[in-house]
Design a protein around this nucleic acid. Structure first.
Lengths: 149, 149
DNA sequence: AGTGAAACAACCACACC
DNA sequence: GGTGTGGTTGTTTCACT
């Protein structure tokens, strides 16, 4: 199956820093030929180790400065509907099914607090929400890349 | 300041899908010349709208299948130390300062449950944790890109 | 801001190790 | 798996609009 050596790790690290870095440069930095790097990258993508090359954008620059963390209790009968809603809603950046008293934790990116209210109203009106509790991110020490959609 | 039109949005969308897509292709899809796209991408990066080109890797493939969501109460006097710890710890994927009874929400990527315990023990031993509550992600409906480090 | 052309650089298939 | 080569493709600069 999937066997990764430390050269694969280095290549992933370099392309994580800059996915558009020429493979010739990557090759120089890891001590392989361009062809070998090209082949390894092809293999890593084919294996699903690298899912895709993407970008990290600034939510503030795109008008979505508010990050809300929403705990949600979802009616059992509506779980499937909730999941497909969460998968397709553009404001939902993350959605995890979690242990504990709440069923799901969502990360929601919106323009302002009115956006949070609109979102919760939308969820309730589709009967996808029994109860919820929302926290706001005041500041972020470390964040995952943000990909607009 | 930052003015973005819908062509910028399209370009960002296409490169978010595949950051290594040739700009010649992007140009064809948005109806501009390659040079114009090149110039817009340069501008978007310079403005910080695009922070970087990166990749989305599989945490499972890299041996980190467990995602723990950790609420943390941090001693006031240790906040600065906590923040620099969180910023540099490789397992901490996200760290947000939040409203509500807990100070911080962390996302932790680890190999197994023992990794969660080790992490909490490490935090406590450096006096960075007053109390905490950990939830495990059972499954993920939608996730942000994961960038190994 | 955008275009088109030309010079340059990177990619990748292939023959060989 | 790896290297090196060379034809093909992509990038980038620049004169012009």
């Amino acid at each position: 199956m999937t066997v990764l050596d430390d050269l694969d790790g280095k290549i992933i690290g370099l392309l994580a820093e800059d996915a558009r870095k020429p493979l010739t440069e990557v090759a120089g930095q890891v001590g392989l030929s361009t062809s070998a790097v090209n082949e390894r990258v092809r293999r890593l993508v084919a294996q699903g180790v690298i899912r895709r090359f993407t970008l990290d954008a600034s939510p503030e620059a795109l008008g979505l400065p508010v990050l809300a963390l929403v705990w949600a209790a979802v009616p059992h009968a509506r779980e499937a509907a909730f999941r497909s809603f969460a998968a397709s809603h553009p404001g939902i950046v993350e959605c995890h099914h979690v242990t504990g008293v709440w069923s799901y934790l969502l990360h929601l990116r919106v323009a302002d607090l009115a956006g949070v209210e609109t979102f919760l109203t939308e969820l309730k009106s589709e009967d996808l929400l029994e109860r919820s509790e929302t926290m706001l991110a005041l500041s972020t020490v470390r964040s995952a890349p943000w990909v607009p959609r």
